[in-house]
Design a protein around this nucleic acid. Structure first.
Lengths: 189, 189
DNA sequence: ATGGATTATTGACATAAGTCAATGCGGCGG
DNA sequence: CCGCCGCATTGACTTATGTCAATAATCCAT
């Protein structure tokens, strides 16, 4: 399990065996069954999770009980709630496995220490955060500029294969649509 | 002009006089008149801009000629296009002053060197990027979860005063609405 | 001051997307 | 193996938002 994480890290920067060991020492491998929570709204989140296998979704539930998915994380992605992490406030999001998954959890204290003590780790995280920000901005752009159909097309193109392993209604929720609307879009397209 | 930037930096981390000098050495102060571009779509963007005074907007123009504002930047904010910066591709966005403004431009080469050589600078940027990412995620959440009216209310609350110094139709564009819709929302609310 | 641009508002109408309800399919768990 | 639950689809209808066009109000710049 950890080997996958190590390989991910080595593909991004050079780590010495000692550094890898230091990272492994604070890595907690966790198995999640489909529908199991990694984080529940209301809890304070103080960690970062690397997805070894499977898929997670991060979503909120609004006053009407509707779910809104703000992100998916498949193999080699990260899942986290920066909002709760930075603010120390209880999270408004849930993070849940959409299929049986394995993640590596790094508590924030350990994570920050690694950033300080392992330059290559800091470098990887720096790049990660920047790319995440860029991706998020791009999603804002789509959300405010595109029609439902355009958003769906972009999703398919941007995350090939993801639509195949996730229920349609979750894709709809990710795009800010209802399941019915997405179904109708797919019919004609 | 630079003093504002220095004050911003000092408020975020401790900088020695020598470090400040090093930063100042690569800082280019630039005045922008209302409607003047800092970046035009099609150009490659290789810098980061700190807003000393005034206000900038970053927006795209779609096939129908409609503008979509992905961000504003007022005093003590940053304006940039990470997408173009990271990819090296021509930008799809314009960055334009909405009022007479003064910015400090740091070319990306210099910016990255500062991150490497001035730890406090790196620290400030790290925090900035993380907060920007968080803010962007939060905006995604609003965009896919809220009604037009809820988005507008949140905007007013999140950026008090901003709606007063920017034309309504730009607020609408930022929220992904038409000017008419926003006007009608304001009437009843 | 005057005149053109920019901005905001309003009305009538069009359209995209949501809501509600029903149906059917298919897989998972007892 | 059966039954239920989750998932997708469809239809009829509602609602939110967009579109187009006209009118003011305001702001600059000549």
């Amino acid at each position: 399990m950890f080997a996958v994480f190590e390989q991910y890290l080595q593909s991004k920067a050079f780590f010495t065996p000692a550094e890898i060991e230091q990272i492994q020492a604070v890595s907690v491998v966790r198995a999640l069954r489909k529908r199991q929570y990694l984080l529940q709204a209301g809890d304070v989140w103080q960690a970062n999770a690397f997805v070894v296998s499977g898929c997670l979704r991060t979503y909120s539930v609004d006053a009407k009980g509707l779910e809104h998915i703000i992100g998916f994380a498949v193999e080699n992605w990260w899942a986290s709630d920066q909002e709760s992490l930075l603010s120390g406030q209880p999270s408004r999001y849930n993070i849940e496995a959409t299929e049986d998954s394995t993640v590596i959890v790094l508590k924030n204290d350990d994570f920050e220490r690694l950033r300080r003590e392992v330059p290559a780790f800091d470098q990887v995280v720096k790049a990660l955060v920047l790319r995440s920000f860029m991706a998020s901005q791009s999603r804002v752009h789509s959300a405010i500029s595109y029609s439902a159909e355009e958003k769906y097309r972009e999703f398919l193109q941007k995350y090939p294969g993801l639509a195949q392993r996730i229920p349609q209604h979750m894709v709809a929720s990710y795009l800010g649509l209802t399941a019915e609307t997405l179904s109708r879009i797919r019919r004609q397209a």
